[in-house]
Amino acid sequence: MFTEERLEQILNILSKNGRVKVKELSELFNVSESMIRKDLKRLEEDGVLQRTYGGAILNRKFSKSSPIDTRIKANLDIKEVIAEKAFELIVDGDVVFLECSSINFYLAKLIANSNKKITLITNMSIIPPLFNNNETIKLICIGGVYDNKSGGVLGSEAISSISKYTFNKGFVGSAGVNLITNSVHTASLEDGNAKELVVSNSKEAFLLVEKEKFDIDSTYRFAHLEEFSAVITDSNLSDEIRYKLKKLNVKLI
């Protein structure tokens, strides 16, 4: 086997399992452990993995918390497309929860400018002013301690309020999605607790996420992908991501 072929297979194993071990690769490819270490060093120099004691792990980006004003402006066109897909799922009579997410802000704008007759519940503080001129939406605002990073209210009071409701549809954003561990992440414990509760209290929970988030991890895992009725994202996903979501029986919109 040529070196390039071995490197490609190592990357395939990494993509599937998230980590590799030198000894196991040596036995698999029938080459010395020193040769495998050279392979891993080369792939590390290419930026695709991080070597560890006895092996290597997939090199994934790590999300940093940023203010809502910054996040709202990033990937604007993509977020509007995702919001439009989510908007089409909402029907009259629904009880909908929008948690603190930049995509949910654009979803809220679509709802505010529509004639849909729903009950909308949110802990995102910048959403209520959008409804000043809307006569058809019953808007319920969750109280709590304001967090300027998330753009919403969090903490024990918010959790207590959210826990009293059941939602037909809950729309949740994420700082990162790991298809190796099937986990969905956010940047803070408080935000994660709120998102986790929204998912559990929703008859249908939808994950709104840009395709780039599938290559990012963050601090707090608040859900597994299997807990969502569907993932709503960009159309231009790689075949690998589509395959992994299909294996998990996660619907893709």
Rank of each mutant, 00 (worst) to 15 (best):
A108R: 01
T186F: 08
L225P: 00
L248A: 08
T186Y: 06
D94Y: 02
E204L: 04
S238W: 12
S174L: 02
G93I: 00
S66P: 11
E88C: 01
F97D: 10
E33V: 05
G144I: 02
I103P: 11
G192Y: 02
I68F: 10
F206M: 02
P67T: 02
Y53I: 09
K16I: 11
L225Y: 09
L110K: 11
I82S: 06
S65K: 06
C141W: 10
L7W: 10
V31H: 05
N168Y: 12
E27P: 07
K117W: 06
D94S: 05
N148F: 15
S161Y: 14
A74V: 10
L49P: 09
V199E: 00
I180G: 04
V250P: 05
G144S: 09
N30K: 14
A112Q: 01
L189Y: 04
P128C: 01
K85G: 03
V145I: 13
K61L: 01
N113E: 11
R60I: 09
K149P: 10
C100Q: 06
S156E: 04
V31N: 09
L154G: 11
V20L: 04
V172P: 00
N104I: 08
L130N: 00
F97I: 02
Y243C: 14
L154R: 03
A83Q: 07
D69H: 12
S102E: 02
T52E: 03
I36E: 07
S63W: 15
Y220E: 04
I137D: 12
I10H: 03
S65L: 13
R71K: 14
K244W: 08
S161R: 13
T70V: 10
K164I: 07
F171A: 04
S156G: 08
N201C: 09
R37T: 06
L98S: 03
G18I: 12
G170T: 08
R71F: 06
D92G: 00
E196D: 11
S200Q: 14
K244Q: 04
I180Y: 00
V96K: 09
Y106G: 02
S202C: 04
Y53G: 09
K203L: 14
V209K: 00
F87D: 08
T233G: 09
D217N: 04
Y53K: 07
M1K: 06
R19C: 07
E204Q: 14
D92V: 12
P128L: 00
Y146G: 14
N75R: 15
R242Y: 08
L225S: 08
I127V: 03
I68N: 13
T52S: 07
L107M: 03
R242H: 05
K21E: 15
V81A: 15
I126S: 15
E44G: 03
L237H: 06
L98Y: 01
S102F: 10
N133Q: 05
I57M: 14
R6Q: 05
S156L: 05
I159W: 04
I159C: 08
L58N: 01
N182S: 06
E210T: 02
E4R: 07
R19V: 04
K164G: 09
